[in-house]
Measured scan of single mutants.
Amino acid sequence: SEEEIREAFRVFDKDGNGYISAADLRHVMTNLGEKLTDEEVDEMIREADIDGDGQVNYEDFVQMMTA
């Protein structure tokens, strides 16, 4: 549901600035027990970053979650 997606976005957007940065993503993945290299984190950001601004905004996140 849209509310679940919004809630998930809030979990990833640690600093609440409306964007998921590589640092935000790394933090959440580490908490989930996933040890990722910087390259892996950057690749995840690139794949999710639809508009190419280097971070994942809510619209990018929705597209990723509903793809």
Score class of each variant (00 low, 15 high):
Ser1Tyr: 12
Ser1Lys: 12
Ser1Ile: 09
Ser1Leu: 11
Ser1Thr: 13
Ser1Gln: 08
Glu2Leu: 14
Glu2Thr: 08
Glu2Ala: 13
Glu2Ile: 14
Glu2Tyr: 11
Glu2Pro: 13
Glu2Val: 14
Glu3Thr: 09
Glu3Arg: 09
Glu3Ile: 10
Glu3Gln: 13
Glu4Leu: 10
Glu4Gln: 12
Glu4Val: 09
Glu4Ile: 10
Ile5Asn: 01
Ile5Thr: 02
Arg6Ile: 07
Arg6Lys: 08
Arg6Thr: 03
Arg6Gly: 02
Arg6Tyr: 10
Arg6Asn: 03
Arg6Cys: 06
Arg6Leu: 13
Arg6Glu: 03
Arg6Val: 04
Arg6Pro: 00
Glu7Phe: 03
Glu7Trp: 03
Glu7Ser: 07
Glu7Asp: 11
Glu7Gln: 11
Ala8Pro: 01
Ala8Ser: 05
Ala8Tyr: 06
Ala8Thr: 03
Ala8Gly: 04
Ala8Asn: 04
Phe9Glu: 00
Phe9Gly: 01
Arg10Val: 04
Arg10Tyr: 03
Arg10Glu: 05
Arg10Trp: 03
Arg10Thr: 04
Arg10Pro: 01
Val11Ser: 10
Val11Pro: 07
Val11Gln: 14
Val11Trp: 07
Val11Asp: 08
Val11Glu: 14
Phe12Gln: 02
Asp13Pro: 00
Asp13Gly: 00
Asp13Tyr: 00
Asp13Glu: 02
Asp13Val: 01
Lys14Arg: 10
Lys14Phe: 14
Lys14Ala: 08
Lys14Thr: 11
Lys14Asp: 07
Asp15Ile: 06
Asp15Val: 07
Asp15Pro: 02
Asp15Ser: 08
Asp15Lys: 06
Asp15Thr: 08
Gly16Met: 07
Gly16Arg: 04
Gly16Val: 02
Gly16Thr: 03
Gly16His: 06
Gly16Pro: 00
Asn17Glu: 04
Asn17Lys: 09
Asn17Cys: 05
Asn17Ala: 06
Gly18Gln: 01
Gly18Lys: 02
Gly18Ile: 00
Gly18Glu: 01
Gly18Ser: 02
Gly18Leu: 01
Tyr19Met: 11
Tyr19Pro: 00
Tyr19Phe: 11
Tyr19Val: 04
Ile20Pro: 00
Ile20Phe: 01
Ile20His: 00
Ile20Cys: 03
Ile20Trp: 00
Ser21Glu: 05
Ser21Leu: 07
Ser21Asn: 09
Ser21Phe: 05
Ser21Arg: 07
Ser21Thr: 09
Ser21Ala: 10
Ser21Asp: 08
Ala22His: 09
Ala22Cys: 07
Ala22Trp: 08
Ala22Arg: 11
Ala22Lys: 13
Ala22Glu: 08
Ala22Gln: 09
Ala23Trp: 02
Ala23Met: 08
Asp24Trp: 03
Asp24Met: 05
Asp24Ser: 05
Asp24Lys: 03
Leu25Glu: 00
Leu25Pro: 00
Leu25Thr: 02
Leu25His: 00
Arg26Met: 03
Arg26Ile: 12
Arg26Asn: 03
His27Gln: 13
His27Asp: 07
His27Leu: 14
His27Tyr: 13
His27Trp: 13
Val28Phe: 02
Val28Gly: 03
Val28Trp: 02
Val28Leu: 06
Met29Tyr: 03
Met29Lys: 01
Met29Ser: 01
Thr30Lys: 14
Thr30Cys: 08
Thr30Met: 14
Thr30Asp: 11
Thr30Leu: 14
Thr30Pro: 01
Asn31Leu: 15
Asn31Gly: 09
Leu32Cys: 04
Leu32Trp: 09
Gly33Leu: 13
Gly33Thr: 11
Gly33Trp: 15
Gly33Arg: 09
Gly33Glu: 04
Gly33Gln: 08
Glu34Met: 15
Glu34Gly: 14
Glu34Cys: 15
Glu34Pro: 14
Glu34Trp: 15
Glu34Asp: 12
Glu34Val: 15
Lys35His: 14
Lys35Gly: 12
Lys35Glu: 09
Lys35Ala: 08
Leu36Trp: 14
Thr37Glu: 04
Thr37Leu: 08
Thr37Asn: 05
Thr37Trp: 05
Thr37Met: 05
Thr37Gly: 05
Thr37Cys: 06
Asp38Thr: 11
Asp38Arg: 12
Asp38Tyr: 09
Asp38Ser: 12
Asp38Asn: 10
Glu39Gly: 07
Glu39Asn: 07
Glu39Tyr: 11
Glu39Ile: 08
Glu39Cys: 13
Glu39Ser: 10
Glu40Asn: 05
Glu40Trp: 12
Val41Tyr: 13
Val41Arg: 04
Val41Met: 13
Val41Leu: 14
Val41Gln: 03
Asp42Met: 12
Asp42Ala: 12
Asp42Trp: 11
Asp42Leu: 12
Asp42Glu: 14
Asp42Gly: 07
Asp42Phe: 08
Glu43Met: 14
Glu43Asp: 11
Glu43Gly: 11
Met44Trp: 11
Met44Phe: 07
Met44Asp: 01
Met44Tyr: 06
Met44Thr: 02
Ile45Ala: 05
Ile45Asn: 01
Ile45Pro: 00
Arg46His: 07
Arg46Pro: 02
Arg46Ile: 04
Arg46Leu: 08
Arg46Ser: 07
Arg46Glu: 06
Arg46Phe: 05
Glu47His: 15
Ala48Thr: 06
Ala48Asn: 07
Ala48Tyr: 10
Ala48Pro: 01
Asp49Cys: 12
Asp49Val: 13
Asp49Ile: 12
Asp49Thr: 14
Asp49Glu: 13
Asp49Ala: 09
Asp49Trp: 09
Asp49Gly: 15
Asp49Gln: 14
Ile50Met: 12
Ile50Trp: 09
Ile50Ser: 08
Ile50Cys: 06
Ile50Lys: 14
Ile50Pro: 11
Asp51Lys: 12
Asp51Leu: 09
Asp51Gly: 11
Asp51Ser: 13
Asp51Glu: 08
Asp51Tyr: 10
Asp51Pro: 06
Asp51Phe: 09
Asp51Ala: 12
Gly52Ile: 11
Gly52His: 10
Gly52Gln: 12
Gly52Cys: 10
Gly52Pro: 13
Asp53Gln: 12
Asp53Val: 09
Asp53Trp: 10
Gly54Phe: 04
Gly54Ser: 05
Gly54Val: 04
Gln55Trp: 12
Gln55Ile: 09
Gln55Cys: 09
Gln55Tyr: 15
Gln55Val: 09
Gln55Asp: 07
Val56Leu: 08
Val56Glu: 00
Val56Met: 05
Val56Pro: 01
Asn57Pro: 10
Asn57Val: 06
Tyr58Ser: 01
Tyr58Pro: 00
Tyr58Phe: 07
Tyr58Val: 13
Tyr58Thr: 02
Glu59Tyr: 06
Glu59Gln: 05
Glu59Thr: 04
Asp60Ser: 15
Asp60Gly: 12
Asp60His: 15
Asp60Glu: 12
Asp60Trp: 15
Asp60Tyr: 15
Asp60Val: 15
Asp60Cys: 15
Phe61Gln: 00
Phe61Arg: 00
Phe61Lys: 00
Phe61Met: 07
Phe61Val: 14
Val62Thr: 04
Val62Glu: 02
Val62Gln: 02
Val62Leu: 15
Val62Gly: 01
Val62Tyr: 06
Gln63Ser: 08
Gln63Met: 09
Gln63Thr: 09
Met64Gly: 04
Met64Arg: 15
Met64Lys: 14
Met65Ala: 04
Met65Trp: 05
Met65Glu: 01
Thr66Gly: 09
Thr66Val: 12
Thr66Ser: 09
Thr66Asp: 04
Thr66Arg: 08
Ala67His: 15
Ala67Val: 08
Ala67Ile: 07
Ala67Tyr: 02
Ala67Leu: 04
Ala67Lys: 15
